[in-house]
Amino acid sequence: MSAVTTVDSPAKRRPRDRVAKLVLHAVLAVGLLVMVGPFLWMLLSSFKSEGEIREVPPTWWPRRLTIGNYADLFDRLDFPAYFTNSVVVATAVTAGNLVLCSAAGYALAKMRFPGRGTLLGLVLGTVMVPGMVTFVPLFVLVSKMGLTNTFAGLILPFLVGAFGVFFMRQFIQSIPDELIESARIDGAGEVRIFWRIILPLCRPALATLGILTFLGSWNNFLWPLVIATTEDKYTLPVALALYSVGQNETDYGLLLAGSVVVVVPVLVVFILLQRHFVRGIATTGLK
C-alpha cells in the first residue's frame, strides 16, 4: 500500500523482515497500551469501592463491582442537569458553526463582492491570537450584555469560528464553478443554490467540522467555568473541574465515575465516526 512496501516486496518473506515486523508490532502495541491504558483503568476503577481505589498496590480488575459511584453522581450531584447543559450548548454551537460558517465560506469561495479580500484576511489574521487576548474583553462584554450565567452567554461567543469559515471555504473552492453557473442559468437564486447544491456536496466537510466543533464545545471548560456561576448552568467539565480541584479529595470514586460520563460519549462518537474525522483532519493539515 505505501511506498516502502513496494520497494521491499521482493524481500518480504525473508526471516529478517519477519522479525522486524514482529518487533514493530510489539512496539506499537506497547505504545497503544500507554495511550489507551489510562482510559481502561479509569473505566474499571469507576466500578471499584472507595477503599479498593486507594489500595496499595493498585489493582486493575475490580474485586467487587459496584455502581455506587454512579449512583452518587445522581444523588449527591446533579449530573443529569450538567449533561443536558453540555448537550444543549454543544448542539447549539455546532449548528451555528455549520450553517453560518458554510454560508460565509460559500460567499468567500464563489462570489465576488467588495470587502471580500479584507474579510478573508481578517479571519485568517486571528488564527494566531491567543485565547487569553480576547478573554478579558469578552468577559466584560458578556457581563455588560447581562448574559453572565445564561445559555446565550455560553453559546454566542462560540457560534462562529475563524477555523470553520476557512475550512468550509477551502472545501467549497473545490466544487466546480460550472455546477453553480448552470444552476444560475436555470434561474436558481443564490440561497437556493447554497441550500440545494452546495450544502449537499459539502456533506463530508460538514461532518468533519461538525464533529470537531461538537468535541471542542463539549470539552471546553475555561469559558463556562467563568460564565456559569450557579450549578444549574454548569456543563460537565465545569462540574468535574470544580469538584476535582476543590477540597473533595476524598471522593475518588465519584471523580472517576464523573470522568467516565464526560469521556465515554465522546469516545463512542469518535470511534463510530473516526473515518470522517481522520480524513478531514488530514486534509485540513495539507492545504
Binding site: A3, D8, L28, Q274
Partner: peptide, 26 residues
C-alpha cells in the same frame, strides 16, 4: 507497510486528543 490492525492503532493513538482535559487530568 508492515503493520496490520492499522485502524485500531490509529484510533487508539488518537483517543487522548478527543477527550476532555479535565477528565484526563483526573
Amino acid at each position: 507497510g508492515l503493520t496490520r490492525f492499522k485502524t485500531v492503532f490509529r484510533v487508539g493513538y488518537y483517543l487522548p486528543v478527543v477527550t476532555s482535559i479535565v477528565a484526563v487530568s483526573v
